[in-house]
């Protein structure tokens, strides 16, 4: 049965259109409700961090935004336009593949396990999207890729294949690869979780510099509470597919209101 979407706007208008809006988004796997009527806005240029216990739906939020997962209910908007749906005869209908391909080009994602293309050098990894998808000239794509590798401090390794790079280096290339598509929104899913402790800093420093110097909208899932506190504009604590509590990092970490938040944060602190 088709969901009735008549209550959802065809596009978002007005003064404060958020860069990302989840509007009553539900995601189920079979009987398991992973996201439950989720509402979440991210403003342009905002860095929002998602924290929460394992299995609370954090990754799913990012994957839905990357359209890697289908949506069961609700609509996600990016830059005011529907992402998961498209307009047809004045109504919203689930987006077809062509629409999705265009729509998701506004989103860039970095994965826990980097997922660099192993048969391409660092530079080629960063040129692949611009050349193959954006139809950019090779010379131009190379220039952009070189700039971005410089930005993440990987210029000297640009001709290396991923297998020759450490985890931290691979993740930095992966960030450059995603940025090469000039996304409006960047997603980071536990990008430091698979890294050795001593190289986590090189990746977090790159993200930090993106926050400081670039007006990118970012959504990040992390277990590094210190880092989240440092760089986030807002922190969302997820529990059971819902936002249990959210706020500025100093409030959420300094003075959590909900019991579950307090429990989670003290458990994390103990583990550290």
């Amino acid at each position: 049965m088709m969901e009735d979407l008549s209550n959802y706007p065809l596009e978002l208008t007005g003064d404060n259109v958020p860069m990302v809006r989840f509007l009553k988004v539900t995601k189920r796997y079979g009987d398991l409700v992973v996201l439950d009527q989720l509402d979440l806005d991210v403003a342009e240029g905002e860095m929002v961090t998602i924290i929460g216990p394992s299995g609370s739906g954090k990754t799913t939020v990012l994957r839905m935004l990357m359209t890697l997962e289908t949506i069961n209910e609700g609509v996600i908007y990016v830059d005011g336009k529907p992402l998961t749906h498209m307009e047809k005869n004045g109504k919203l209908v689930p987006a077809d593949r062509k629409y999705l391909r265009k729509a998701r080009s506004q989103i860039g994602m970095c994965f826990q396990h980097f997922n660099l293309f192993p048969h391409m050098t660092a530079l080629e990894n960063c040129m692949e999207g611009p050349v193959q998808v954006l139809g950019m000239k090779k010379a131009e794509a190379r220039e952009r890729a070189e700039e971005l590798l410089e930005l993440v401090g990987m210029s000297d390794k640009r001709d290396q294949h991923p297998s020759r790079l450490s985890g931290g280096q691979q993740q930095r290339v992966a960030i450059a690869r995603a940025l090469a598509m000039r996304p409006k929104v960047m997603l980071f899913d536990e990008v430091t979780s698979a890294l050795d402790p001593e190289v986590i800093g090189e990746v977090t420093n790159v993200i930090r510099s993106l926050v400081e110097k670039h007006n990118l909208t970012m959504l990040m899932v992390t277990h590094q509470m210190g880092f989240a506190k440092d760089i986030s504009d807002r922190v969302c604590f997820f529990f059971d597919g819902k936002i249990e509590e959210q706020g500025a990092p100093e409030d959420l970490f300094g003075n959590p209101q909900k019991e579950r938040t307090q429990q989670f944060l003290s458990a994390v602190k103990e583990a550290d």
Binding site: R104, F111, N115, E128, Q132, V133, A174
Partner: peptide
């Protein structure tokens, strides 16, 4: 690995390009 499909998908590559190039 599935991650390769997902990375190519996240770059908005079309199914043909994804298969052929990645």
């Amino acid at each position: 690995p599935k991650g390769q499909w997902e990375a190519a998908y996240a770059l908005s590559m079309s199914p043909m390009r994804r298969m052929w190039r990645i």
